[in-house]
Amino acid sequence: MNIAQQIEASEGLDMDADTDQYLTFMLDGEEYGVDILRVQEIKGWDSVTPIPNTPQYIKGVINLRGTIVPIFDLREKFNLEQIPYGATTVVIVLKVKNEKGSRTMGIVVDAVSEVYNIKTEDLKASPDFGSAISTDFVEGLATINEKMIIVLDIDFLLNSSVEGDLELG
């Protein structure tokens, strides 16, 4: 089922006040979700202009109808094994909020997957792995059709990716 049909189908449902819609995508076999209201557009992978002296996972910037938008590779950010970009590789352009307002940024993922309605109460906090694995950017875990969905806190994830590495390079 493609996204458009999925959205259509979900519009028919009675939306609960505390139900949010999430767009999910695949990354190294796992399914991650982001708040669909933050998604500005989904576009195919195209070449980027690299920015010197930035971490490897910052692929570069693209021209999105006249604005300069930075692109992050989530596989590299999460230290996953790298694969060549293929036919399903997409860039999800997101609106990221910070204290100064908002930024537009893109993330490179393996493929887009589904749109789900997830009730707030079904969102479980992620278990604490101790200091070994940082899970600050995980907003919660949800289970849909026996599958685990990792819902990301994109504000934290992307803002820290930008700000935290000022000294690198």
Binding site: I51, V61, G66, T67, I68, V69, P70, R103, T104, M105, V162, E163, L166
Partner: peptide, 8 residues
């Protein structure tokens, strides 16, 4: 174009 508006 500004690089800072969406980046740093």
């Amino acid at each position: 174009k500004s690089l800072e508006s969406n980046f740093k």
